[in-house]
């Protein structure tokens, strides 16, 4: 694979990582901590939303984030022909 393609592959990977980590930060630190008090005005079932993100929601999102990354990278690996046999 040529150097240019490799750079492009790496750049796309970094783009995915940046977006997914931004969501990671948003659900745990922003929703679960910084804005928890304000979000607590809203409810999901019997739980205040900020509290729920800190004890439940963020964990669900974490799991989804990893599987989304797996999906995106498998596709990217094939596209740039760097996947393993």
């Amino acid at each position: 694979m040529s150097g240019k393609n490799l750079q492009e592959y790496w750049k796309k990977n970094l783009g995915y990582v940046a977006i997914l980590l931004a969501i990671w930060f948003l659900v745990s630190y922003v929703f679960g901590i910084f804005l928890a008090d304000s979000l607590n005005a809203v409810r999901i079932g019997g739980a205040k939303l900020g509290f729920w993100f800190a004890q439940q929601g963020s964990i669900y999102v974490f799991v989804v984030l990893i599987f989304v990354y797996v999906y995106l990278m498998n596709k990217l690996d094939n596209e740039y022909d760097v996947h393993e046999e």
Partner: peptide
């Protein structure tokens, strides 16, 4: 919640 998020978020 610090433990719940802290001990799971690391896997991301």
């Amino acid at each position: 919640g610090v433990f719940l998020m802290g001990w799971t978020g690391g896997y991301v």
